[in-house]
Nucleic acid binder design. Structure first.
Lengths: 219, 219
DNA sequence: GGCGCTGTCTATAGCTCAATAGGTAGAATT
DNA sequence: AATTCTACCTATTGAGCTATAGACAGCGCC
Protein backbone atom coordinates (compact mmCIF):
# COMPACT_ATOMS: atom_id res chain seq x y z
CA UNK A 1 0.00 0.00 0.00
CA UNK A 2 1.43 3.22 -1.05
CA UNK A 3 1.65 5.96 1.40
CA UNK A 4 0.18 9.10 0.10
CA UNK A 5 3.17 10.73 -1.52
CA UNK A 6 2.94 14.20 -0.20
CA UNK A 7 1.03 15.95 -2.94
CA UNK A 8 1.98 19.27 -1.54
CA UNK A 9 5.27 18.24 -0.14
CA UNK A 10 7.64 20.82 1.19
CA UNK A 11 10.41 18.67 -0.20
CA UNK A 12 8.97 18.72 -3.67
CA UNK A 13 10.77 20.60 -6.40
CA UNK A 14 12.12 23.66 -4.67
CA UNK A 15 10.85 26.26 -7.09
CA UNK A 16 10.60 26.14 -10.82
CA UNK A 17 11.52 29.78 -11.39
CA UNK A 18 10.96 29.55 -15.08
CA UNK A 19 12.26 32.97 -15.89
CA UNK A 20 15.43 32.67 -13.84
CA UNK A 21 17.80 32.53 -16.82
CA UNK A 22 16.24 35.65 -18.21
CA UNK A 23 16.56 37.44 -14.88
CA UNK A 24 20.21 36.51 -14.44
CA UNK A 25 20.97 37.65 -17.94
CA UNK A 26 19.45 41.03 -17.23
CA UNK A 27 21.55 41.27 -14.08
CA UNK A 28 24.65 40.38 -16.07
CA UNK A 29 23.93 43.07 -18.60
CA UNK A 30 23.40 45.75 -15.99
CA UNK A 31 26.38 44.74 -13.86
CA UNK A 32 28.59 44.63 -16.94
CA UNK A 33 27.52 48.08 -18.02
CA UNK A 34 27.52 49.98 -14.75
CA UNK A 35 29.59 47.86 -12.41
CA UNK A 36 28.18 46.10 -9.37
CA UNK A 37 28.03 49.08 -7.05
CA UNK A 38 27.07 51.45 -9.83
CA UNK A 39 24.07 49.32 -10.75
CA UNK A 40 20.82 49.34 -8.84
CA UNK A 41 18.28 46.59 -8.56
CA UNK A 42 15.92 49.09 -10.11
CA UNK A 43 18.08 49.10 -13.25
CA UNK A 44 17.74 45.33 -13.51
CA UNK A 45 14.00 45.49 -13.00
CA UNK A 46 13.72 48.14 -15.72
CA UNK A 47 15.40 45.86 -18.24
CA UNK A 48 12.87 43.17 -17.46
CA UNK A 49 9.85 45.43 -17.21
CA UNK A 50 8.95 44.32 -13.71
CA UNK A 51 9.03 45.98 -10.30
CA UNK A 52 12.20 46.21 -8.29
CA UNK A 53 10.87 44.19 -5.38
CA UNK A 54 9.81 41.35 -7.66
CA UNK A 55 13.43 40.48 -8.28
CA UNK A 56 13.72 39.11 -4.77
CA UNK A 57 11.57 36.22 -5.80
CA UNK A 58 14.53 35.09 -7.90
CA UNK A 59 17.57 35.96 -5.83
CA UNK A 60 18.05 36.51 -2.11
CA UNK A 61 20.17 39.65 -2.40
CA UNK A 62 22.03 41.80 -4.86
CA UNK A 63 25.24 40.06 -3.93
CA UNK A 64 23.55 36.73 -4.51
CA UNK A 65 22.71 37.85 -8.02
CA UNK A 66 26.33 38.81 -8.58
CA UNK A 67 27.45 35.38 -7.53
CA UNK A 68 25.05 33.70 -9.92
CA UNK A 69 26.31 35.85 -12.76
CA UNK A 70 29.94 35.20 -11.90
CA UNK A 71 29.38 31.47 -11.73
CA UNK A 72 28.01 31.51 -15.25
CA UNK A 73 30.93 33.67 -16.25
CA UNK A 74 33.45 30.96 -15.55
CA UNK A 75 31.15 28.02 -16.12
CA UNK A 76 32.91 25.18 -17.86
CA UNK A 77 35.93 27.27 -18.74
CA UNK A 78 38.31 25.55 -16.48
CA UNK A 79 37.33 22.01 -17.39
CA UNK A 80 37.85 22.68 -21.06
CA UNK A 81 41.19 24.32 -20.40
CA UNK A 82 42.34 21.41 -18.31
CA UNK A 83 41.32 18.96 -20.98
CA UNK A 84 43.30 20.84 -23.59
CA UNK A 85 46.35 21.17 -21.36
CA UNK A 86 46.51 17.48 -20.56
CA UNK A 87 45.52 16.37 -24.04
CA UNK A 88 47.64 15.61 -27.08
CA UNK A 89 49.51 17.99 -29.36
CA UNK A 90 52.54 20.20 -29.34
CA UNK A 91 52.73 22.92 -26.73
CA UNK A 92 52.34 25.57 -29.41
CA UNK A 93 49.25 23.84 -30.68
CA UNK A 94 47.78 23.54 -27.22
CA UNK A 95 48.48 27.16 -26.44
CA UNK A 96 46.68 28.15 -29.60
CA UNK A 97 43.69 26.05 -28.67
CA UNK A 98 43.70 27.36 -25.11
CA UNK A 99 43.51 30.90 -26.38
CA UNK A 100 40.75 30.08 -28.81
CA UNK A 101 38.66 28.35 -26.19
CA UNK A 102 39.35 31.09 -23.69
CA UNK A 103 38.00 33.75 -26.00
CA UNK A 104 35.15 31.86 -27.57
CA UNK A 105 32.57 32.56 -24.83
CA UNK A 106 32.80 36.23 -25.64
CA UNK A 107 30.61 35.79 -28.68
CA UNK A 108 27.49 35.01 -26.72
CA UNK A 109 28.28 35.49 -23.06
CA UNK A 110 30.43 38.56 -22.93
CA UNK A 111 28.38 40.20 -20.21
CA UNK A 112 28.88 37.26 -17.90
CA UNK A 113 32.58 37.18 -18.62
CA UNK A 114 33.01 40.89 -18.07
CA UNK A 115 31.20 40.72 -14.77
CA UNK A 116 33.33 37.82 -13.67
CA UNK A 117 36.52 39.60 -14.65
CA UNK A 118 35.74 43.05 -13.33
CA UNK A 119 33.27 42.61 -10.49
CA UNK A 120 34.18 39.39 -8.77
CA UNK A 121 36.27 41.38 -6.33
CA UNK A 122 33.05 42.74 -4.85
CA UNK A 123 31.73 39.33 -3.88
CA UNK A 124 31.61 38.52 -0.21
CA UNK A 125 34.87 36.83 0.81
CA UNK A 126 33.46 33.34 0.93
CA UNK A 127 32.05 33.13 -2.55
CA UNK A 128 35.02 35.02 -3.88
CA UNK A 129 37.34 32.35 -2.67
CA UNK A 130 35.10 29.66 -4.06
CA UNK A 131 35.19 31.31 -7.46
CA UNK A 132 38.86 32.19 -7.18
CA UNK A 133 39.70 28.52 -7.41
CA UNK A 134 38.41 28.43 -10.95
CA UNK A 135 40.73 31.27 -11.88
CA UNK A 136 43.76 29.68 -10.40
CA UNK A 137 42.96 26.42 -12.10
CA UNK A 138 42.85 28.24 -15.40
CA UNK A 139 46.19 29.88 -14.78
CA UNK A 140 47.65 26.51 -14.01
CA UNK A 141 46.38 25.04 -17.24
CA UNK A 142 48.14 27.76 -19.17
CA UNK A 143 51.29 27.51 -17.12
CA UNK A 144 51.53 23.76 -17.46
CA UNK A 145 51.43 24.10 -21.21
CA UNK A 146 54.12 26.75 -21.16
CA UNK A 147 56.31 24.63 -18.93
CA UNK A 148 55.78 21.68 -21.16
CA UNK A 149 56.84 23.79 -24.12
CA UNK A 150 60.00 24.83 -22.36
CA UNK A 151 60.76 21.27 -21.32
CA UNK A 152 60.31 20.01 -24.84
CA UNK A 153 62.46 22.72 -26.30
CA UNK A 154 59.64 24.31 -28.22
CA UNK A 155 59.75 27.46 -26.13
CA UNK A 156 62.61 29.61 -24.90
CA UNK A 157 64.35 27.98 -21.99
CA UNK A 158 64.68 31.26 -20.14
CA UNK A 159 60.97 32.03 -20.40
CA UNK A 160 59.46 33.21 -17.14
CA UNK A 161 56.38 31.07 -17.36
CA UNK A 162 54.58 32.85 -14.54
CA UNK A 163 54.95 36.23 -16.15
CA UNK A 164 54.06 34.82 -19.52
CA UNK A 165 50.83 33.38 -18.15
CA UNK A 166 49.88 36.67 -16.59
CA UNK A 167 50.69 38.46 -19.81
CA UNK A 168 48.71 36.06 -21.95
CA UNK A 169 45.68 36.21 -19.70
CA UNK A 170 45.92 39.96 -19.49
CA UNK A 171 45.93 40.24 -23.23
CA UNK A 172 43.08 37.78 -23.61
CA UNK A 173 40.89 39.08 -20.83
CA UNK A 174 41.11 42.63 -22.04
CA UNK A 175 39.28 41.57 -25.18
CA UNK A 176 36.03 41.49 -23.24
CA UNK A 177 36.29 45.22 -22.74
CA UNK A 178 36.69 46.31 -26.34
CA UNK A 179 35.48 43.60 -28.63
CA UNK A 180 32.00 45.06 -28.93
CA UNK A 181 33.28 48.49 -29.84
CA UNK A 182 35.82 47.22 -32.32
CA UNK A 183 34.04 45.51 -35.11
CA UNK A 184 35.91 42.29 -35.36
CA UNK A 185 35.07 38.63 -35.11
CA UNK A 186 36.38 36.73 -32.13
CA UNK A 187 37.94 34.08 -34.33
CA UNK A 188 40.11 36.67 -35.95
CA UNK A 189 41.24 37.96 -32.59
CA UNK A 190 42.01 34.47 -31.35
CA UNK A 191 44.01 33.69 -34.43
CA UNK A 192 46.05 36.88 -34.35
CA UNK A 193 46.73 36.69 -30.63
CA UNK A 194 47.63 33.02 -30.74
CA UNK A 195 50.07 33.62 -33.54
CA UNK A 196 51.62 36.59 -31.76
CA UNK A 197 51.94 34.79 -28.46
CA UNK A 198 53.22 31.52 -29.82
CA UNK A 199 55.89 33.39 -31.74
CA UNK A 200 56.61 35.36 -28.60
CA UNK A 201 57.38 32.37 -26.42
CA UNK A 202 58.90 30.20 -29.13
CA UNK A 203 62.55 29.41 -29.23
CA UNK A 204 64.18 31.68 -31.75
CA UNK A 205 65.70 29.98 -34.74
CA UNK A 206 69.19 30.43 -33.39
CA UNK A 207 70.14 26.76 -33.48
CA UNK A 208 70.31 25.61 -37.05
CA UNK A 209 70.13 22.07 -35.89
CA UNK A 210 66.92 20.28 -36.55
CA UNK A 211 67.31 18.17 -33.49
CA UNK A 212 64.86 19.63 -31.05
CA UNK A 213 61.56 19.33 -32.79
CA UNK A 214 62.33 15.84 -33.91
CA UNK A 215 63.45 14.85 -30.48
CA UNK A 216 60.02 14.36 -29.04
CA UNK A 217 59.49 11.19 -27.14
CA UNK A 218 58.63 8.03 -29.00
CA UNK A 219 59.21 7.39 -32.63
CA UNK B 1 57.64 74.87 1.13
CA UNK B 2 57.50 78.39 2.41
CA UNK B 3 55.79 80.70 0.06
CA UNK B 4 57.56 83.72 -1.22
CA UNK B 5 55.28 86.57 -0.40
CA UNK B 6 54.40 88.66 -3.33
CA UNK B 7 55.07 92.27 -2.38
CA UNK B 8 52.04 94.15 -3.48
CA UNK B 9 49.31 91.97 -4.70
CA UNK B 10 45.98 91.21 -3.14
CA UNK B 11 45.42 88.95 -6.13
CA UNK B 12 48.26 86.74 -5.04
CA UNK B 13 47.20 83.15 -4.62
CA UNK B 14 48.75 82.50 -1.27
CA UNK B 15 49.07 78.82 -0.63
CA UNK B 16 45.75 77.35 -1.30
CA UNK B 17 45.15 73.77 -0.50
CA UNK B 18 48.57 72.73 0.67
CA UNK B 19 47.46 69.22 1.48
CA UNK B 20 45.72 68.65 -1.83
CA UNK B 21 48.26 66.14 -3.13
CA UNK B 22 47.85 64.13 0.03
CA UNK B 23 44.08 64.22 -0.24
CA UNK B 24 44.06 63.11 -3.86
CA UNK B 25 46.43 60.31 -3.08
CA UNK B 26 44.09 59.06 -0.39
CA UNK B 27 41.22 59.19 -2.84
CA UNK B 28 43.28 57.26 -5.38
CA UNK B 29 44.05 54.58 -2.85
CA UNK B 30 40.44 54.15 -1.81
CA UNK B 31 39.06 54.25 -5.35
CA UNK B 32 41.66 51.73 -6.48
CA UNK B 33 40.82 49.37 -3.66
CA UNK B 34 37.03 49.53 -3.62
CA UNK B 35 36.09 50.98 -6.97
CA UNK B 36 34.49 54.38 -7.39
CA UNK B 37 30.95 53.42 -6.46
CA UNK B 38 32.10 50.98 -3.81
CA UNK B 39 34.08 53.67 -2.05
CA UNK B 40 32.56 56.29 0.23
CA UNK B 41 33.85 59.72 0.99
CA UNK B 42 33.95 58.52 4.58
CA UNK B 43 36.52 55.91 3.56
CA UNK B 44 38.74 58.63 2.14
CA UNK B 45 38.35 60.77 5.23
CA UNK B 46 39.29 57.81 7.42
CA UNK B 47 42.56 57.37 5.59
CA UNK B 48 43.40 61.00 6.23
CA UNK B 49 42.10 61.15 9.76
CA UNK B 50 39.74 64.00 9.08
CA UNK B 51 35.95 64.36 8.92
CA UNK B 52 34.00 63.38 5.86
CA UNK B 53 32.63 66.86 5.26
CA UNK B 54 36.10 68.39 5.40
CA UNK B 55 36.97 66.77 2.11
CA UNK B 56 34.70 69.19 0.31
CA UNK B 57 37.18 71.90 1.03
CA UNK B 58 39.45 70.15 -1.46
CA UNK B 59 37.13 68.86 -4.14
CA UNK B 60 33.66 69.91 -5.24
CA UNK B 61 32.18 66.43 -5.49
CA UNK B 62 33.08 62.79 -5.40
CA UNK B 63 33.10 62.74 -9.17
CA UNK B 64 35.40 65.73 -9.15
CA UNK B 65 37.83 63.78 -7.01
CA UNK B 66 37.68 60.90 -9.47
CA UNK B 67 38.55 63.22 -12.29
CA UNK B 68 41.55 64.61 -10.43
CA UNK B 69 42.79 61.10 -9.75
CA UNK B 70 42.29 60.02 -13.34
CA UNK B 71 44.13 63.05 -14.66
CA UNK B 72 47.15 62.16 -12.57
CA UNK B 73 46.78 58.58 -13.75
CA UNK B 74 47.56 59.51 -17.33
CA UNK B 75 49.64 62.56 -16.60
CA UNK B 76 52.59 62.85 -18.93
CA UNK B 77 52.16 59.35 -20.30
CA UNK B 78 51.08 60.38 -23.68
CA UNK B 79 53.76 63.00 -24.26
CA UNK B 80 56.49 60.55 -23.41
CA UNK B 81 54.98 57.91 -25.67
CA UNK B 82 54.71 60.35 -28.53
CA UNK B 83 58.33 61.39 -28.11
CA UNK B 84 59.47 57.79 -28.24
CA UNK B 85 57.32 56.99 -31.24
CA UNK B 86 58.57 59.88 -33.30
CA UNK B 87 62.15 59.59 -32.10
CA UNK B 88 65.05 57.61 -33.45
CA UNK B 89 65.67 53.89 -33.34
CA UNK B 90 64.41 50.69 -34.87
CA UNK B 91 60.75 49.84 -34.45
CA UNK B 92 61.62 46.94 -32.19
CA UNK B 93 63.69 49.21 -30.05
CA UNK B 94 60.98 51.81 -29.85
CA UNK B 95 58.38 49.22 -28.97
CA UNK B 96 60.57 48.02 -26.15
CA UNK B 97 60.98 51.53 -24.85
CA UNK B 98 57.27 52.23 -25.18
CA UNK B 99 56.48 49.23 -23.04
CA UNK B 100 59.06 50.16 -20.44
CA UNK B 101 57.81 53.71 -20.17
CA UNK B 102 54.21 52.53 -20.13
CA UNK B 103 54.82 50.29 -17.15
CA UNK B 104 57.23 52.44 -15.21
CA UNK B 105 54.61 54.58 -13.43
CA UNK B 106 53.36 51.47 -11.70
CA UNK B 107 56.22 51.53 -9.25
CA UNK B 108 55.08 54.67 -7.52
CA UNK B 109 51.68 55.58 -8.89
CA UNK B 110 49.89 52.31 -9.31
CA UNK B 111 46.78 53.50 -7.52
CA UNK B 112 46.34 56.37 -9.92
CA UNK B 113 46.89 54.12 -12.89
CA UNK B 114 44.46 51.51 -11.65
CA UNK B 115 41.80 54.11 -11.07
CA UNK B 116 42.32 55.54 -14.50
CA UNK B 117 42.12 52.12 -16.12
CA UNK B 118 39.21 50.70 -14.18
CA UNK B 119 37.09 53.62 -13.03
CA UNK B 120 37.30 56.22 -15.74
CA UNK B 121 34.12 54.81 -17.22
CA UNK B 122 32.25 56.24 -14.24
CA UNK B 123 33.24 59.79 -14.98
CA UNK B 124 30.54 62.14 -16.20
CA UNK B 125 30.47 62.06 -20.01
CA UNK B 126 32.23 65.34 -20.48
CA UNK B 127 35.36 64.67 -18.47
CA UNK B 128 35.40 61.13 -19.77
CA UNK B 129 35.72 62.35 -23.29
CA UNK B 130 38.37 64.82 -22.28
CA UNK B 131 40.41 62.05 -20.71
CA UNK B 132 39.62 59.61 -23.48
CA UNK B 133 41.72 61.69 -25.83
CA UNK B 134 44.83 60.82 -23.87
CA UNK B 135 44.06 57.14 -24.27
CA UNK B 136 43.56 57.36 -27.96
CA UNK B 137 46.76 59.30 -28.35
CA UNK B 138 48.59 56.57 -26.56
CA UNK B 139 47.11 53.91 -28.78
CA UNK B 140 48.20 55.88 -31.79
CA UNK B 141 51.76 56.11 -30.54
CA UNK B 142 51.91 52.34 -30.27
CA UNK B 143 50.21 51.80 -33.58
CA UNK B 144 52.47 54.18 -35.44
CA UNK B 145 55.49 52.26 -34.22
CA UNK B 146 53.96 48.97 -35.29
CA UNK B 147 53.13 50.34 -38.72
CA UNK B 148 56.60 51.69 -39.06
CA UNK B 149 57.97 48.27 -38.20
CA UNK B 150 55.84 46.66 -40.86
CA UNK B 151 56.83 49.25 -43.42
CA UNK B 152 60.49 48.76 -42.70
CA UNK B 153 60.23 45.01 -42.91
CA UNK B 154 61.08 44.51 -39.26
CA UNK B 155 57.65 43.18 -38.42
CA UNK B 156 55.38 40.69 -40.16
CA UNK B 157 53.72 42.26 -43.15
CA UNK B 158 50.40 40.62 -42.39
CA UNK B 159 50.32 41.92 -38.84
CA UNK B 160 46.97 43.40 -37.86
CA UNK B 161 48.37 46.46 -36.18
CA UNK B 162 45.10 47.45 -34.58
CA UNK B 163 44.64 44.11 -32.89
CA UNK B 164 48.28 44.03 -31.92
CA UNK B 165 47.98 47.40 -30.21
CA UNK B 166 44.94 46.28 -28.29
CA UNK B 167 46.70 43.09 -27.31
CA UNK B 168 49.84 44.84 -26.18
CA UNK B 169 47.96 47.40 -24.14
CA UNK B 170 45.75 44.69 -22.66
CA UNK B 171 48.79 42.76 -21.55
CA UNK B 172 50.51 45.84 -20.18
CA UNK B 173 47.51 47.37 -18.46
CA UNK B 174 46.65 44.17 -16.67
CA UNK B 175 49.93 44.44 -14.81
CA UNK B 176 48.43 47.13 -12.60
CA UNK B 177 46.02 44.57 -11.21
CA UNK B 178 48.49 41.93 -10.12
CA UNK B 179 51.91 43.42 -9.77
CA UNK B 180 51.50 44.10 -6.06
CA UNK B 181 50.40 40.58 -5.30
CA UNK B 182 53.09 38.96 -7.40
CA UNK B 183 56.42 39.86 -5.95
CA UNK B 184 58.28 41.02 -8.96
CA UNK B 185 60.03 44.19 -10.01
CA UNK B 186 58.47 46.22 -12.77
CA UNK B 187 61.69 46.25 -14.75
CA UNK B 188 61.62 42.52 -14.96
CA UNK B 189 58.06 42.54 -16.20
CA UNK B 190 58.84 45.19 -18.79
CA UNK B 191 61.81 43.26 -20.04
CA UNK B 192 59.99 39.95 -20.31
CA UNK B 193 56.92 41.46 -21.95
CA UNK B 194 58.94 43.53 -24.37
CA UNK B 195 60.91 40.51 -25.42
CA UNK B 196 57.79 38.41 -25.84
CA UNK B 197 55.93 41.03 -27.81
CA UNK B 198 58.79 42.05 -30.05
CA UNK B 199 59.34 38.42 -30.94
CA UNK B 200 55.62 38.10 -31.46
CA UNK B 201 55.33 40.80 -34.05
CA UNK B 202 58.73 40.31 -35.66
CA UNK B 203 59.15 38.89 -39.08
CA UNK B 204 59.81 35.24 -38.57
CA UNK B 205 63.35 34.09 -39.03
CA UNK B 206 65.97 36.33 -40.42
CA UNK B 207 66.03 34.83 -43.86
CA UNK B 208 69.71 34.21 -44.04
CA UNK B 209 69.50 30.46 -43.66
CA UNK B 210 66.92 27.85 -44.19
CA UNK B 211 65.26 27.05 -40.95
CA UNK B 212 62.73 24.53 -39.91
CA UNK B 213 60.09 27.00 -38.91
CA UNK B 214 60.36 28.89 -42.14
CA UNK B 215 57.93 26.83 -44.10
CA UNK B 216 55.19 27.50 -41.57
CA UNK B 217 54.74 31.11 -42.47
CA UNK B 218 54.06 32.39 -45.90
CA UNK B 219 56.40 31.59 -48.67
C1' DG C 1 -15.31 24.91 -6.39
C1' DG C 2 -12.21 25.15 -2.88
C1' DC C 3 -6.88 24.95 -2.42
C1' DG C 4 -2.32 25.75 -3.02
C1' DC C 5 1.32 27.37 -5.85
C1' DT C 6 3.72 30.70 -8.88
C1' DG C 7 4.84 35.15 -10.03
C1' DT C 8 3.80 39.49 -9.61
C1' DC C 9 2.25 43.68 -7.20
C1' DT C 10 2.02 47.89 -3.51
C1' DA C 11 3.89 50.01 0.30
C1' DT C 12 7.29 51.06 3.30
C1' DA C 13 10.93 50.37 6.74
C1' DG C 14 15.52 51.33 7.64
C1' DC C 15 19.77 52.69 6.37
C1' DT C 16 23.70 54.83 3.95
C1' DC C 17 25.61 58.37 1.74
C1' DA C 18 26.80 62.83 -0.77
C1' DA C 19 26.56 67.37 -0.10
C1' DT C 20 25.34 71.92 2.30
C1' DA C 21 25.31 75.39 6.03
C1' DG C 22 27.46 77.64 9.19
C1' DG C 23 30.86 77.93 12.91
C1' DT C 24 35.80 78.61 14.64
C1' DA C 25 40.81 78.09 16.14
C1' DG C 26 44.93 79.70 14.88
C1' DA C 27 48.32 81.40 11.65
C1' DA C 28 49.44 85.05 8.54
C1' DT C 29 48.99 89.60 7.02
C1' DT C 30 48.37 94.52 7.58
C1' DA D 1 45.56 94.93 17.44
C1' DA D 2 42.50 94.07 14.09
C1' DT D 3 41.54 91.58 10.04
C1' DT D 4 41.80 87.96 6.78
C1' DC D 5 42.44 83.46 5.30
C1' DT D 6 43.24 78.48 5.76
C1' DA D 7 41.78 74.31 7.18
C1' DC D 8 39.27 72.16 9.56
C1' DC D 9 34.86 71.18 12.59
C1' DT D 10 29.54 69.89 13.93
C1' DA D 11 25.06 69.15 12.51
C1' DT D 12 21.80 68.09 9.27
C1' DT D 13 19.18 67.51 5.06
C1' DG D 14 17.40 64.95 1.55
C1' DA D 15 17.84 61.61 -1.83
C1' DG D 16 18.40 56.95 -3.15
C1' DC D 17 18.87 52.30 -2.22
C1' DT D 18 18.22 47.34 -0.49
C1' DA D 19 15.25 44.38 1.46
C1' DT D 20 10.90 42.89 3.85
C1' DA D 21 5.82 42.36 4.50
C1' DG D 22 1.82 41.24 2.86
C1' DA D 23 -1.88 41.16 -0.75
C1' DC D 24 -3.68 38.91 -4.79
C1' DA D 25 -4.56 37.34 -9.66
C1' DG D 26 -4.38 33.45 -12.48
C1' DC D 27 -3.75 28.63 -13.05
C1' DG D 28 -3.74 23.60 -12.49
C1' DC D 29 -5.51 19.95 -9.57
C1' DC D 30 -8.16 16.78 -6.87
Amino acid sequence: MTVVTLPSSRRSRPSPRRREPEIIEAAARVFAERGFHGATTQDIADVLGIRQASLYYYFPSKEGALELVCLQGVGGFFEVAKAIASGPGTAADKLTRLIKSHLSPLTDRSDFVRVFLNERQHLPPESRRRIGKWSRGLEQAFESVLKEGVRRGEFRSDLDTRLAVLGILGMANAVANWYRAEEVAIDRVSAEFARLLVAGVAKRPKPRRRSIAARRSGR
